[in-house]
Each structure stands twice: as structure tokens, then as C-alpha cells.
Simulated assay, not measured.
Amino acid sequence: MFTPHPAWVCAVSLLLSVSAPLSARQLSSITGCVQDSTRAAIPGAAVILTGSDGAGRFQTRADDKGCFNLSGLRSGKYRLQIFAEAFSAYEADIALEDPIRLEDIVLEIHPIQAEVVVTATRNLAPANTLGSSVDVIDRSRIEASHIQTASDLLRNIGGLAVVRTGNAGGITTLFTRGGNSDDTKILVDGIPVNQPGGTYDFAYLPADNISTIEVVRGPQSALFGSDALTGIVQMFTTRGTAPPSRIFT
């Protein structure tokens, strides 16, 4: 029977006792609280942390006290973004090595803007005059979020559930207000793009060519047919501004 040398046993024990704390120290966390200018908590604020060196993308929401916790983070450089309805977005660059407890983050009230919506009535109409529940994501909000896909933009809209099978590139479908995936009509520049059966795969739809997204929740069958049972998502692509060019060879 083989009996390990006592020196080997000591060496292995020492290696295990050292390697465990080292691996634990590789992961860190960021905590903080989100408030308005009156120091009142902003519950439900969306918190997004994006690694600048391929460290991944993490997101969560502030709790009832406006506080959040992102854990399991590797050391590196990150971009922190916080969004809340009616407030201006917050952005900051963070170099993470050890756990960080941020000072209270104060969001400023966003200037009131009159959003004009086409989808809800098929005509231009101010969003605050409509009877439907409407959300508009304009180009400035898309650029501020640094989000790369349309499906990730829609994840932050209330009443929508975005489901993806597997990793990036897997089939990505949208559910509105608990309905089926084929109950939401998807339009691009006014053209229906739902696949046969009513579903639409958002897997390969980038955000960099989208100027505006309009989301209308609730039945819209009177205007758009029976496949708009739970809502409509319409995406408008960017328009070129330079005159057309011709190249002859």
C-alpha cells in the first residue's frame, strides 16, 4: 500500500489553502443606491454594467430602497449605466479591483419632451394624447445605452418579456403582457415582418441601424389585424442624409 510522504501532504495542503483565497479574490462586486435630487429612492432603476475588455455584460434593477448589487465580477474596466423612467441616464467608467461601494447616485429629472407616435393611430399624434400604453425609444437613448441588439433594448420596456434560447444568436422571441409570441405584430418602417405563424426572431437584428422604436401595448387588431392581439412593436431605420453618389467603372 502506497503511503504519501509527509512533505507531499504538507505541500498539497498549503497549495489548496492558498489557491482557494486567490480564486475568491478574483471576483468582486459593485453596490450602490439610486436617488433623485430630493434624496428619495428610485426603485426599479435599470442598472447595466458592461466590460470594456470582454469581461461581459451584467444587469439588475434597484430594489424597493433604490439599492442594487452586482456580484461575481472580475477585475477590469467597466462602463456603468443607470436608467429610470422620467430621469436622465447616468453613466460612469469604473476600474474594478476590489469590491466597491458607490456613493449615492443622484439622477436628474429628464426634461419634458413631447413624443410623437405613429404606430398607435397610423397618424402622427403626441404620446400624451393617446389612450394606449406607449413607449418610445429614440436614437439618443439607443446611443446612450451602448446596447447592440434590438432585443436587449426591448428588455427594459415594461410589459415585454424577451426570451432567448441558448447563447447569443439563439432564437429570440417577444411576449407582450403575457400573451403568446405570435400575438405581437412587428413592423419595420411600416412593413410587417412577422414570419408565417406570427412569430419574429430578433436574434440578428442590430440596434445601430435603428432610429426609433415605438411599442404599443394592448389590443390593436382594429388597426393592424388579428395578429396584433397583445401589442405592436414598430422599428424605424435611420435615413441617409448625403446625396446619392454614382461610381462608373
Rank of each mutant, 00 (worst) to 15 (best):
S151V: 02
D104P: 13
Q195G: 04
A203L: 02
P219V: 02
E143P: 00
G158M: 07
D152V: 03
V116F: 14
G218A: 13
I137W: 08
V162W: 03
I142C: 09
D135E: 11
V162R: 01
L107K: 03
D189M: 10
S145L: 04
N209Q: 15
V118S: 03
R122P: 03
P206E: 00
A168F: 06
A203D: 04
K185I: 12
L160F: 00
N209S: 13
G158E: 14
D183S: 15
V116Y: 15
P192A: 09
L205S: 07
G158R: 15
G198A: 12
A203R: 02
D182N: 15
I186E: 02
Y204T: 10
D135I: 00
G198L: 04
G131D: 10
V117S: 05
N180K: 15
T165R: 12
V116G: 06
I137N: 09
K185H: 04
A144T: 11
V117M: 05
L107Q: 03
P206R: 01
R155V: 14
V188C: 04
P219D: 15
I137C: 12
G218D: 06
V116D: 09
E103I: 08
R139G: 01
L124M: 14
A207L: 07
E214T: 04
N167Q: 14
L174P: 03
P192W: 00
K185R: 13
T129K: 06
T212W: 02
A120L: 05
T119E: 11
T176V: 08
I157F: 04
G178N: 08
R122H: 05
G169A: 02
A203P: 04
L130R: 03
D138K: 09
D104M: 08
Y200P: 01
R139A: 02
I210C: 02
H146T: 06
N167G: 11
R122Q: 13
S211M: 12
N180P: 00
L174R: 02
G197V: 10
S221D: 12
I142V: 10
P196W: 09
P219A: 11
S140M: 08
N123G: 11
N128I: 05
T119P: 06
D138L: 08
R155G: 05
A150I: 03
L205R: 10
H110V: 00
H110Q: 11
P196Q: 11
I210Y: 04
A114Q: 15
S145I: 05
T184S: 07
H146P: 01
I157H: 06
V188E: 05
T199N: 15
D135Q: 14
L187K: 02
V116M: 15
E143F: 09
I137F: 10
R122V: 07
V136R: 09
D208Q: 05
P206M: 01
D189I: 10
L223V: 04
V216S: 14
K185D: 03
N167L: 14
G131S: 14
N128T: 07
E103Y: 08
A168R: 13
G190P: 08
L174E: 02
A161H: 05
F202H: 05
V117W: 07
L160C: 09
V163D: 11
D201G: 07
T165A: 10
S211C: 07
I210Q: 01
N194P: 01
I137R: 12
E143L: 15
E103H: 11
S221K: 13
G131I: 07
E108M: 06
H110R: 12
I137H: 10
D183G: 10
A203Y: 01
I186Q: 01
V117G: 05
E108W: 01
A222W: 05
V118M: 07
T184H: 01
G218K: 13
